[in-house]
Amino acid sequence: MKNIFLLSIILLSFSCKAQQTYSLDTDYETVSNYSYLKDINNELLPFIGTWKATFDNKEITIKVDKVDHHYTKLGTNIYYKDVLFIRYSIKSSQGTIIKSTMNLTVQNSNIESIAIFPNQVISFIYSGGDCQYGWGDVDLKLVDATHVKWRYQPEGVILTNLNCPNGADTTIYLPKTPDLVFTKQ
Results as ranks from 00 to 15, higher is better:
Lys2Ile: 14
Asn3Val: 08
Leu6Tyr: 15
Leu6Val: 15
Leu7Arg: 14
Ser8Phe: 15
Ile10Cys: 13
Ile10Tyr: 12
Leu11Val: 07
Phe14Glu: 08
Ser15Gly: 08
Gln20Arg: 09
Ser23His: 12
Thr26Trp: 02
Thr26Met: 03
Asp27Lys: 05
Glu29Cys: 11
Ser32Asn: 14
Asn33Ile: 02
Tyr34Val: 04
Tyr34Cys: 07
Tyr34Leu: 11
Lys38Trp: 08
Asn42Thr: 12
Glu43Asp: 15
Pro46Ser: 07
Phe47Ala: 10
Phe47Gln: 12
Phe47Asn: 11
Ile48Met: 13
Lys52Gln: 13
Lys52Arg: 14
Asp56Glu: 13
Asp56Val: 03
Asn57Val: 02
Thr61Lys: 06
Thr61Val: 05
Lys63Arg: 13
Lys63Asp: 09
Val64Asn: 10
Asp65Trp: 06
Val67Met: 09
Asp68Thr: 13
Thr76Glu: 12
Asn77Pro: 01
Tyr80Arg: 10
Lys81Trp: 02
Asp82Tyr: 05
Asp82Glu: 09
Val83Cys: 08
Ile86Gly: 00
Ile86Pro: 00
Tyr88Glu: 00
Ser89Pro: 01
Ser89Lys: 01
Ile90Phe: 03
Ser93Gln: 14
Ser93Pro: 11
Gln94Val: 05
Gln94Tyr: 11
Thr96Tyr: 05
Lys99Ile: 00
Thr101Arg: 02
Thr101Glu: 07
Asn103Cys: 04
Leu104Met: 11
Thr105Pro: 03
Ser109His: 10
Ser109Lys: 10
Asn110Gln: 12
Glu112Gly: 03
Ser113Phe: 06
Ala115Gln: 10
Ala115Ser: 12
Ile116Asn: 01
Gly129His: 01
Tyr133Glu: 03
Tyr133Gly: 02
Tyr133Trp: 09
Gly136Val: 02
Val138Pro: 03
Leu140Val: 03
Leu140Gln: 02
Leu140Lys: 03
Lys141Arg: 14
Lys141Thr: 09
Leu142His: 08
Leu142Ser: 11
Leu142Arg: 13
Val143Tyr: 15
Val143Gln: 15
Asp144Met: 12
Ala145Glu: 14
Thr146Glu: 13
His147Ala: 08
Val148Gly: 04
Gln153Val: 09
Pro154Thr: 04
Glu155Asn: 15
Glu155Arg: 15
Leu162Pro: 04
Leu162Ala: 15
Cys164Val: 10
Asn166Gln: 15
Ala168Gly: 05
Asp169Cys: 01
Thr170Val: 04
Thr170Glu: 05
Ile172Pro: 00
Ile172Ala: 04
Leu180Met: 04
Leu180Asp: 00
Lys184His: 06
